[in-house]
Design a protein around this nucleic acid. Sequence first.
DNA 1: ACCGTTACGCACCAGTCGGTGCGTGCGAGG
DNA 2: CCTCGCACGCACCGACTGGTGCGTAACGGT
Lengths: 131, 131
Amino acid sequence: MAGMSESEPHCEALVADCRLRAATDLFAHTWDPVVLAALRPGPRRRRELRAAIGGLSDKVLTETLRRLCARGLVDRRAFAQAPPRVEYALTPLGRSLVEGPMQALGAWILEHGDALLMAEENGMEPGSTGS
Amino acid sequence: MAGMSESEPHCEALVADCRLRAATDLFAHTWDPVVLAALRPGPRRRRELRAAIGGLSDKVLTETLRRLCARGLVDRRAFAQAPPRVEYALTPLGRSLVEGPMQALGAWILEHGDALLMAEENGMEPGSTGS
DNA sequence: ACCGTTACGCACCAGTCGGTGCGTGCGAGG
DNA sequence: CCTCGCACGCACCGACTGGTGCGTAACGGT
C-alpha cells in the first residue's frame, strides 16, 4: 500500500473493480479499521481509544484519526474546555461502513476463521485444498 | 502494516475485534483483493491475470498468488504440459470471501464512493462535517 | 509558582511492500 | 541448433508505515 493515490489512469484495467481498490484502501492502514470499530459504541476521546485498543502509539492514533476525519468517516469535535477535550465519533458515512462491509467481514472470519488458520498453518498439502 | 503477524498476544485488548484484524489483513497487500476479484469469473493463468489486471509486476503477482494459496483462498493447479500451464482458481473459501464481504465492500463504495471522494477532496471545512 | 493532564507535533529508525531488471529451466517450433 | 513462451527466482531500490522518545501549548489544581 504505497503511493496508490493515483487518480485513475489504468483503473478500468483493474478487472473493472477499481472501486474495489478504493474500498480496500480504507483498510490499508493497520489501525484504521480497529479505531473505526472502537468508535462504533459511541464517541470517544483519544485517551479512551488508546486504552480501549492498546498497542498503538500516540502518533499513529493521531494519524489514523486524521485520515479517518479527512475521509469523512469520523467527526472530530473539540470542546473549549479546561483540559482540552476532543471527542471523535463516527459520521453517518463511517457508521455505514462499520455496520455494513466491516460487519460482513467480521461475520466472515467468525465463520471461516478456523479454516483460514488451518490453511495457513498446515501450509497446503496437495489434495487437501478441497477443490 | 508492519510485522503484524504476531500470534495473538494483546489480541483481546483490541476492542474485542482481534478477529477483525485477521480479516483486514487479508486486504493488507495491495493486489490481493484485486487478484481475488480477477479470479471470480473462473480459473486463470498468470499471463491472463497480469493482462486482465494491468499494473502489477510479475514478481508481485507471484507473491500474491503464493500468499493466497497459503491462505487457502486460491488453488494452484499445474498441468504437466508442453508450455508450462498453471491455473489459479478460487477455492470454496476464497469464493465465499469474494462473494461475501468483498462484494459487500464493493456495494458500499458504489453507494458511498462519491461521498468519500467529496470528503477527501474538500478536506473538511469546519462545520461542513455534517454533524 | 509548580505540576499534572490532554492533545498534539516532530525527529529518528527499522521493517516491509511494491517496482524494475535480469536470469533460470523446460519444452515447442523454425 | 537456436530462439521463443511460460512460470518462476533473485538482487536492488525507493517509498511508506508504524514505533519510540521527546517537546509543545493551554489550562486547572494545590
